[in-house]
Amino acid sequence: MIRVAAVGDIHLGPDSRGLLRPAFETLHRQADLLLLAGDLTRHGTPEEARVVADEVAGLPVPVIAVLGNHDHHAERPDDVTDVLRSAGVTVLEGEGTVVEVDGVRVGVAGTKGFGGGFAGRSGSEFGEPEMKAFVRHTRGLADGLRGALDGLAADGCAVRIALTHFSPVPDTLVGEPLEIYPFLGSYLLAEAVDESGADLAVHGHAHLGTEHGITSGGVRVRNVAQPVIRRAFAVYGLPVDGSHTTATSAA
C-alpha cells in the first residue's frame, strides 16, 4: 500500500507562517509522499512562496507540487517555482517524477491545468483570439499531462498519480455554483488521465466542492482543497498490484 498525503489551496502568506508545520511533521507516521495541489500562496509572490518553502522544508517524505492560479497572480511563476525547489520541493508542469517507496516505483504527473468546462458544456477554440487562447491553454496543459503519464508508464511505474490544480471532472465540484464550473476545470484533463491511465487523480481549486469523484474511464478523483478536506492534508492508500490502473486506450 502506498500512502499518499495531499492538500491544495493552502494560500499561505506571511501571517500564516507555521500554521501547517505541526501537522506536516506527523507525515512520516502516516504517508510516503506529500502532494501539493496548487494555490500554495495568495498572490504568487516569492515572499509568499518562501513561507510555503519553510513550511515543507526538511520533511521526511518527498514533496511534489503543481502551481495554481493564485501562484500565477503576480506573474512570477518561475520565481515561485525556484523558491519551492530551493526547499527540495519537486514542482511539476507537464512533466512527471518518480518516487521509490519500499522498492515500488510511484510516478506523479503534474500540471496546473485550466478551465473550459466539461463534456457537452465546454468552450471551444472558436471566435475571438482570447477565447481560442483560453481553450488552447487548457488543451496544451492537458497534452502535457498525457505525455507525462505516458512517460511514467514507460518508466515502469507500478502506481501513477495525476496531480492538477484545476479539476478534471464535475463530480468534485458539487457544492460550487453550476455557473462557474467552466472556470473550475476541464474534461480535457480527465480525457488525458483516462487515455494514459492512472490510479488516482488529485486536484484542488474548488473550495466549495466535494472530495470524491471519478472519471468516466474509472479513475478515482479527489478534491483536496483544504476547505473541502477540512484537515491539514488527506491521506489515500493505494494498492501496488496495478489492478486499479485504468487505461481506456489500452482496454
Binding site: 501547517l20 501537522a23 491539514a232 489515500y236 492508500g237 494498492p239
Partner: peptide, 13 residues
C-alpha cells in the same frame, strides 16, 4: 480552516 492532521487514511483498494 482546520490545520490538524487527519486521524485515518482513505483506503482506495
Amino acid at each position: 480552516a482546520d490545520v490538524t492532521a487527519p486521524d485515518h487514511p482513505e483506503d482506495l483498494s
